[in-house]
Amino acid sequence: MLVIRPIAQKDFPTLKQFAIESGHGFTSLPVNDDLLQRKIDNSLAAFANRGTAKAEGLYFFVAEDGETGEVLGTCAIDAAVGLSDPFYNYLLGKQVHSSAKLGIYNVVETLTLTNDYTGVSELCTLFLRESARVGLNGRLLSKSRFLFLAEFSELFDHRILAEMRGVSDEQGRSPFWHWLQEHFFTMDFPTVDYLTGIGQKGFIADLMPKFPIYVNLLSKAARDVIGITHNNTRPALHLLEEEGFTWRGYVDIFDAGPSVECELSQIRSVRNSRQYTVKIGDVSQGNQHLISNTQFADFRALITEVELVGESDKDGLLTVTLTKEVAKLLKVTKGDRVRLVEI
């Protein structure tokens, strides 16, 4: 059984291996020891000092096998993007060129460089080792973050963002970036992807076109991938769409992958999750639920069968029965509170 927990220093070697395995286009996991260590340090600091309001902070989680201790995946939440470093997107829009006198009316699509997501909270760094992409593991890795958001909503923005990896081939060649490289840059896609991942974004402001780009001027290959998700990322997009995330025209400035968003309060697992009081015992008849404890620094989440009991505690919360094994993995005992939502 996989268990989600905050990342620890001991996870560095595995995190570096994930960075290697994730390949080109996975900007948030560059193969760079200093940056990976910085991400761990930032997460340790965020979990060590719980605030009372939204601020910069990286909450980094790993998926660990409850029996063997092997770490098989990662996911994270960036509490507020773009405050220390610029956060760029293209917005796909329209411009009208018309002349009533000549009877001409043309609508053309444009791409405009924006910082519209500054301060928004971002879901990021979702990676699951190929051998673990079975059963409900991917669902757990993606959706466990929503229980953390629900429990500690005061630490996050009312808008939640997720950038989807755009189209590129096995060599890291992006059709969209190829057009930009030809006209504005002299760097290939893997290079700019790596520079962005390690925080060196100054070249974007220096070299990116400052005015809207007319989409019809792009090559057909570049136009065809605008807003299209990489094949390996489509399952992750599907899970977010189940939760209510939608695309509103924002795309990545390098590979044109879509950025999807949802109001925090409208995310399905946030809206439908509830706190329950723990009871320890046998679970003979139960349904699969995503369940987490309500602890901050010791956050744990997993998917298991639980039995909802039709009785309330002194505070009016309903009771849920967990097995001893599940309670141990969640670090809870009788009388503690958990948050859960049906899968």
Rank of each mutant, 00 (worst) to 15 (best):
D33E: 15
P13W: 05
V278S: 03
C75K: 05
K16A: 12
I77E: 01
N89Q: 15
R50E: 15
V120S: 08
I228F: 11
E325K: 14
P30W: 11
A150N: 10
N42M: 13
L302Q: 08
G202R: 02
N137W: 09
F245R: 02
L15G: 01
F245Y: 10
H238L: 12
P235V: 07
V167L: 05
R50T: 09
P6S: 04
D315M: 11
P30N: 08
F189H: 08
P13H: 07
I160D: 03
D336F: 11
Y90Q: 05
L340K: 01
I280N: 08
P258N: 02
F184H: 15
K331M: 13
K328T: 14
Y250V: 00
K101F: 15
H289R: 10
A222P: 03
F185H: 11
A76K: 02
L44D: 06
L155D: 03
A297F: 14
L113G: 05
P30R: 09
K54R: 15
I77L: 11
D224C: 03
N137A: 10
G172E: 02
L2S: 03
L318D: 13
N115F: 12
L329P: 00
V225L: 07
V326R: 00
Y105A: 13
G244Q: 04
G172N: 03
A221N: 07
L123W: 07
L239N: 08
R139W: 13
L72T: 09
H24E: 14
L36N: 08
G244P: 07
G73M: 02
G93R: 04
C75L: 06
D193R: 05
Y105H: 15
I228Y: 12
S144K: 06
L113Q: 07
I280W: 09
A132G: 12
F245Q: 02
F12G: 02
V260N: 05
N232C: 08
T321M: 13
H183Q: 09
P235F: 05
S131Q: 15
K331L: 14
D169S: 06
L140R: 08
S99G: 03
G227L: 04
V71H: 01
D34G: 00
Q95R: 14
E56S: 12
R268E: 12
V107M: 10
R337L: 15
G51Y: 06
Q288C: 09
G73V: 01
M187V: 00
V260R: 04
I228D: 00
S168Y: 05
V283L: 07
F254Y: 12
F254H: 09
G73T: 00
L15V: 10
A19I: 05
L195Y: 13
Y105D: 14
G119E: 00
V192E: 06
A80V: 07
R139Y: 15
P235N: 05
A301W: 04
Q181A: 11
G103I: 05
H178F: 14
V251P: 02
T323M: 11
L195A: 11
G281A: 09
D188T: 08
L240Q: 06
I77R: 04
L140G: 06
V62I: 11
A256E: 08
V309Q: 13
T112C: 07
S153N: 04
D157H: 14
Q288V: 05
S312T: 13
P209E: 06
T319N: 12
V326A: 10
K54H: 15
A55S: 15
K143W: 10
P6E: 04
N115C: 13
V71F: 00
T118I: 10
F26M: 06
Q181V: 00
R300M: 00
K16C: 12
Q171Y: 14
L302T: 11
G335N: 09
E21R: 14
